[in-house]
């Protein structure tokens, strides 16, 4: 089964806009459209810091344009997506305000239509349009301060969120199945004969597929570690220890939490065992293992673990 994954930077990206875009957005918030004059004399709208034809810096002359403008081209969206600004049919339009030499892409709202409607006949290049601004108090100084060109209001905030359905891949899926049964599985490489945990279905060193399944112990040895003093939602407290644990029977150390003793007593070579969550809380996830805790065995000498770091 795929698992939902949302890629969303919390709170949204904080974008500094610089002087040129900043001037445009400030004027926009005040309900004015301005373009900027390029060295060639053309008025670039919306303003860019450069002439898009050649990269040269634009002049510092701002020119008020519009508010009336002309539709140069458009795309009719009969079935809007969740991320679109309107939840009913609308058009994306290239609108060139009077006095500008380039066009802005924006929403063109031509009225209420049923989902799936064909493009309305009156929608064609040359259509004259005007911006419909948000109420002054609601303007934020961004491009959506114009709700749409032409009236009729239904507003949706565009989310800064992308959702995915992710599958782990066949090898990792099998590993997680093992973990869901309290077993830790790896693969032995047919070339180097080393056991990789978790398995990837291939040996990254030899570049060959791996299929020979090996169950390894839930005990192992700490090879090296960090004491973390920055909080993390996955860790029990601060400080906490993230360690490379070489499980007995494995040839690659895996990254895991180590707890059950003060952080300053964790040692290279220390023997540990997985602390599993109660069985009823298990799922297909590595977090079935809460962390690793020390066991009462002598430390492994450094020279026997040195090659695993």
């Amino acid at each position: 089964m795929p698992t939902n994954h949302a890629l969303e930077f919390p709170g949204g990206y904080t974008r500094s806009v610089g002087p040129v875009i900043g001037r445009f957005l400030s004027e926009l918030r005040d309900g004015r459209l301005v373009g900027v004059r390029a060295g060639s004399g053309r008025v670039i709208f919306p303003p860019l810091e450069y002439d898009p034809d050649n990269g040269h810096a634009v002049t510092d002359e701002y020119v008020e344009v519009g508010p009336s403008g002309t539709v140069e081209s458009f795309a009719w969206v009969g079935e809007p997506l969740p991320s679109h600004p309107l939840d009913r049919p609308f058009a994306w339009a290239l609108v060139r305000p009077d006095g500008a030499d380039t066009a802005i892409l924006h929403v063109l709202d031509v009225g209420e239509y049923e989902r799936g409607a064909a493009p309305p006949k009156r929608l064609k290049p040359g259509l004259r349009v005007r911006p419909r601004y948000r109420a002054a108090a609601e303007r934020r100084g961004d491009i959506s301060d114009i709700e749409a060109f032409q009236p009729e209001v239904t507003m949706i905030t565009a989310p800064s969120r992308l959702e995915y359905d992710l599958k782990p891949g066949r090898a990792l899926d099998r590993f997680l199945e093992g973990v869901s049964e309290g077993r830790i599985l790896g693969h032995r490489c047919p070339v180097c004969r080393k056991v990789m945990v978790p398995m990837k279905g291939l040996c990254p060193k030899d570049g060959v597929p791996t299929t020979e399944e090996v169950e390894v112990a839930d005990t192992g040895t700490v090879t090296t570690f960090a004491v973390n003093n920055l909080p993390d939602p996955r860790a029990p407290q601060v400080p906490f220890v993230s360690a490379y644990v070489l499980l007995d029977g494995a040839d690659v150390a895996m990254v895991a939490l180590v707890s059950g003793l003060p952080a300053d007593q964790v040692r290279m070579g220390m023997r540990v065992r997985a602390l599993w969550k109660p069985r009823e809380e298990w799922g297909r996830t590595i977090t079935n293992i809460r962390w690793f805790e020390p066991i009462d065995e002598p430390d492994v000498p450094f020279d026997r673990i040195a090659e695993y770091m």
Binding site: T3, N4, H5, L7, F9, Y164, L166, P168, L172, F175, L176, P198, N228, L230, D232, R234, A235, S242, M254, V255, A256, L257, T285, I286
Partner: peptide, 11 residues
């Protein structure tokens, strides 16, 4: 920012 199937803990 990783997928839901991560097997490591690194801060």
């Amino acid at each position: 920012v990783g997928g839901p199937h991560s097997t490591s803990l690194v801060v």
